[in-house]
Design a protein around this nucleic acid. Structure first.
Length: 262
DNA sequence: AATTCCCACAACCGCTCTTAA
DNA sequence: GTTAAGAGCGGTTGTGGGAAT
């Protein structure tokens, strides 16, 4: 049967957004709120696809977006979460308020992946985070001008704050592993955070891991088994990574000392 | 000064998932 | 149960700007 295109492509603008288009979109959303993306362009007087409008708003115009360089603390968290979650950019972005999945994805593809690749393909991933923070590996832009990037100093400065994830659609975490049934059970806890909108920081920035969960509930046994059976998780790897993550989350005042990881 | 190359990032595309009729 | 619209995600591409030659 085939799906109808999300919108008629005829006569629609493509490519970079103009200031006027930005203004029209922002004005409309301020007045009417987000959503109804398909009909939004017409109502807002834009010659754009609804998807394009949504993307522009989500990745660029939204007022809560934090722009600027990704700091060492954020970078550290990205690396850790990527090790744990893979390319689930929206999940990773959910833990970094003000950052978008697109931004994190770009940052990963342009900087972090290169740095990690340079470490050597056969390196054991279990020590990936600390290695990625190794000054010897910090040769590109963010670190070019940093004097003596001692790992401990860097981490002490960073004092990583962990934030509750933005509410997200339940996506198929196990999709790659054909464990779809997991999603149909009561495991909304698997990837979704509590119903907090817009990545707002709750409780003075100090949030436990997926409230209402017990430690270790992040992956349920079935999924974890699948991951292990496909060789995506080696013995002790997940425990170690998740332990590190819990350690981050459990530090008082949302700040952590990571020097033990160096 | 002109040209080429490289990189970062914005935007697009195709797909999946959810939801409502 | 089926279908289609709406929404979201992740991979990929296009483009502009700066660096190098």
């Amino acid at each position: 049967m085939g799906r109808a295109p999300c919108c008629s492509k005829v006569g629609l603008h493509k490519g970079p957004w103009t200031a006027r288009e930005d203004m029209l979109l922002a004005k409309y959303i301020q007045a009417h709120g987000e959503g109804q993306w398909r009909s939004l362009p017409k109502k807002a007087g834009l010659l754009r696809c609804g998807k394009s409008c949504r993307l522009r708003w989500m990745n660029y115009l939204r007022p809560d977006i934090k722009r600027g360089n990704i700091g060492p603390d954020e970078e550290d968290l990205i690396i850790r979460l990527h090790t744990l979650l893979g390319n689930r950019w929206s999940l990773i972005a959910g833990r970094l308020p003000g950052r978008t999945d697109n931004e994190i994805k770009n940052y990963w593809n342009t900087q972090l992946s290169k740095r990690i690749r340079n470490r050597g393909a056969d390196h054991n991933h279990q020590s990936g985070v600390s290695e990625a923070l190794d000054p010897a590996n910090m040769k590109d832009n963010n670190y070019k001008n940093q004097e003596n990037s001692n790992c401990k100093e860097k981490i002490e400065r960073s004092q990583t704050q962990i934030h509750v994830p933005k509410p997200i659609r339940l996506t198929s975490f196990p999709r790659d592993f054909q464990v779809m049934e997991a999603r149909n059970s009561s495991d909304s806890k698997l990837v979704s955070g509590p119903a907090v909108h817009g990545g707002e920081v709750v409780k003075e920035d100090l949030i436990g891991p997926w409230p209402d969960l017990k430690d270790g509930d992040l992956l349920d046994e079935e999924i974890e088994h699948e991951l292990r059976s496909h060789g995506h998780i080696k013995d002790g790897m997940l425990e170690k990574l998740y332990g590190e993550y819990l350690e981050l989350l459990n530090e008082e005042e949302g700040k952590v000392q990571l020097d033990s990881l160096c």
